[in-house]
Nucleic acid binder design. Structure first.
Lengths: 218, 218
DNA sequence: CCATCAACAGGAAAAAATACCTTTTTGGTA
DNA sequence: TACCAAAAAGGTATTTTTTCCTGTTGATGG
């Protein structure tokens, strides 16, 4: 979100990234050196003072930064630090840890909530991709992998390869979720994880589209 | 890049995306209805007039859009889409469809991207919950459900019940993901979906914590 | 220890954006 | 075609941000 605090934090982060003080950043951008004084971020009457859009454009250009980088600072997902859980909470992602690391001490409190340092960060679906959508499983045909009611997040723009879990739609309207075993000019071979359902071969001529499943609810 | 022209174009695109005129968008955001008049985009002396950063924050919030979406408009890489799918994008969720419905016509374009009417909406994880975190699977012990490298999103605050997929950590540091078969005062019974690994009973005295898995990457 | 300079606090003036206002234009509907 | 409401042109007053300015503080080098 675009908030007063976030915008000022992004200005500070941009300055830090390019080894400048806020005052030095302002000068480099052709602004008054006191433009980004912390004492000027609130008005006399306590009202938040926003840097102008034109000022933001100037500092991005002056540092040869990019709008995407600056927005990364605004959103808190771009930082040069090893994140603590608290830092991770300030971003749109969630803290990530390997299972092996999870077994060690120092990553969880007594109730099982994540704490401390050393976490990586991961973006969850539906935030950065504009084409993803969700399909809800109906029936038991995809057990044991997917149960009735599970939600699958599908990313049609994602490249697919052997081993991926995919959704395939045939020209006669059948929609199925299976594992991609092979894809070539003739069609695709799909592996079912339910022994009661056979593996499938779908010729290209019968396939309307195929898309990768990126997340599944549990 | 952040330029005068691009910012105004983004405002126009945002208005179009949400079926508003620039004047309607300004009003919806609590600004003067004439704030985004094209006649006000240049000053009388020909100097470019920039909408303020605070105004941009207000229109993004008023439309339940996102900073990323707006920046997509600024950079010209995001255009107005079909209203229904676009309506779904108005929220922090993604469009949702049942598998049975997916078989019918009218929900996908030829390339498999979601279009048209009739979509539901679902919230994805990690946005509204402050305690969720992710664990990354290492090794093959959780096949066929979870593969090496998969990411599991865990919600320690979520209530758990029979049939849920959970992560359990024991006092001696073991971390495992299995299906909850039974939970009582003595401990928990866990079902493994890998026949090469036995089902487990974990006494309460040996269990540090248990948490529900809400999403898994595929 | 002292001089120098960058950074910053904070007030006042100038510049820029928004709110307020009147009028005209445009588009939808009966 | 008439009517109506929304949109927009465009002017003025008010509010907000930036520039200009003075003074203080802290870091650094001699």
């Amino acid at each position: 979100m675009l908030s007063h605090e976030r915008v000022w934090a992004a200005i500070d982060t941009l300055a830090e990234r390019y080894s400048l003080s806020p005052s030095g950043l302002a000068k480099k951008a052709g602004l008054d050196s006191t433009a980004f004084n912390k004492s000027k971020r609130l008005s006399v009457d306590g009202r938040p003072r926003w840097p102008s859009t034109e000022s933001l454009a100037k500092i991005i250009e002056a540092t040869n930064s990019s709008l995407d980088e600056f927005i990364g600072f605004v959103e808190g997902r771009t930082a040069a630090l090893s994140v603590s859980v608290a830092s991770a909470r300030q971003t749109s992602g969630v803290p990530l840890l390997g299972f092996a690391q999870a077994g060690a001490g120092g990553f969880f409190d007594d109730a099982g909530f994540p704490v401390g340092q050393g976490w990586d960060l991961i973006e969850l679906p539906g935030q950065a991709t504009e084409n993803s959508y969700a399909l809800q499983v109906q029936g038991d045909s995809m057990l044991p992998l997917y149960r009735n009611g599970d939600v699958l997040v599908v990313e049609p723009a994602a490249p697919i390869r052997k081993g991926d879990r995919v959704v395939v739609k045939t020209l006669d309207g059948e929609v199925m979720a299976k594992v991609l075993e092979r894809q070539n000019a003739a069609g695709v071979d799909l592996v079912s994880l339910n022994p009661e359902h056979p593996d499938r071969h779908i010729p290209i001529a019968r396939m309307e589209w195929i898309a990768r499943i990126v997340w599944a609810s549990q």
